[in-house]
Amino acid sequence: MARLIILRHGNTFDKGETPTRVGARTDLSLSVSGRTQAHALAAHFQDTAFCAAFCSPLLRTRQTARTILDARPHAPALRILTFLTEVDYGPDENQTEDTVIARIGAEALAAWDRDATPPPGWQVDPAALRAAWASLLERASTLEADANVLIVTSNGIARFLPDVVDAQPDGLDRKLKTGAWGVVDVSPDDSRILDWNLRP
């Protein structure tokens, strides 16, 4: 089976700063703690030979992926997949969570976390994202059995992957934490999430 490492970028806010809902239209760089997370990830994966690496156009994903790849010789070229770009949070883009909840309500946010149902006003196409993940899994199924692929994306995009795999751990929390990754094994006959929300 080929193995996909689905990784969320590092932090974009540090302790003491007020975090906001950072989406596709807010292109922040990694914060100090985010860069620390990226270096920890690079150390963790230093002995993993990646045959391919993908990320979104957003700086935070490119910086995270680049830090991991630059820590090894003979790293593959980093390629951009636009579907990996974070969702557009519409009127809630770059707003604090209190402001978001005041507009859409706690239950709408809970539905997003629970089953990826977009709240009103968010610009996201669940069917298209699921189809893009399914296509990527299909392409990965043709790789050599020992191939490893690095994919760096955002929480809003990663949460749609569990919907298109054949098997996943019971009770999986689809929300991927910053600087955390999931492990997905893919073969021509099967795809399964082995683990999720791992950190170094």
Rank of each mutant, 00 (worst) to 15 (best):
Q168G: 12
D115C: 01
W181S: 00
V22C: 12
A180Y: 04
I68R: 09
A128W: 02
H39C: 01
W196P: 05
Q46C: 14
A71R: 12
E138V: 03
A180G: 02
L4D: 11
F45T: 14
N148M: 12
A134G: 11
V165R: 12
G156P: 00
L84R: 12
Q37L: 01
A106W: 05
L198M: 04
A2H: 01
R139E: 14
D125R: 03
Q63N: 11
A40C: 04
G16R: 03
A42M: 04
S31Q: 02
L28Y: 11
S135N: 09
A167P: 01
Q46I: 05
A127E: 13
E93K: 13
F45Q: 12
A75E: 06
L41D: 10
I101G: 04
V32W: 01
A38C: 11
Y89P: 07
V184A: 05
E93M: 11
F54L: 15
P119R: 13
V124A: 15
K177F: 07
V32Y: 04
S191M: 00
T99F: 02
D70N: 04
L129T: 13
I68K: 08
E86C: 06
S33M: 08
V124K: 07
T142E: 11
P169R: 05
L176N: 10
G16A: 08
S187Y: 01
L28S: 08
A38I: 07
A127D: 13
G90Q: 04
G16F: 04
S135A: 14
L129V: 13
D189Q: 07
H9S: 10
E138M: 11
A131S: 14
G121C: 15
S31N: 02
I101S: 13
A145L: 11
A132E: 12
R35V: 07
A132H: 14
M1D: 06
G105H: 06
P118Q: 05
P126D: 09
G179N: 03
L161E: 06
F83T: 10
A106F: 05
T85H: 00
A128E: 11
T96Q: 06
D47W: 07
E138K: 12
S31R: 02
T142Q: 14
A106M: 11
R62F: 04
D170W: 01
T117D: 04
L41Q: 03
A145N: 13
L194H: 01
D189H: 12
Q63L: 00
L161S: 02
A110T: 10
R130F: 08
D146Q: 14
G121H: 11
A77F: 08
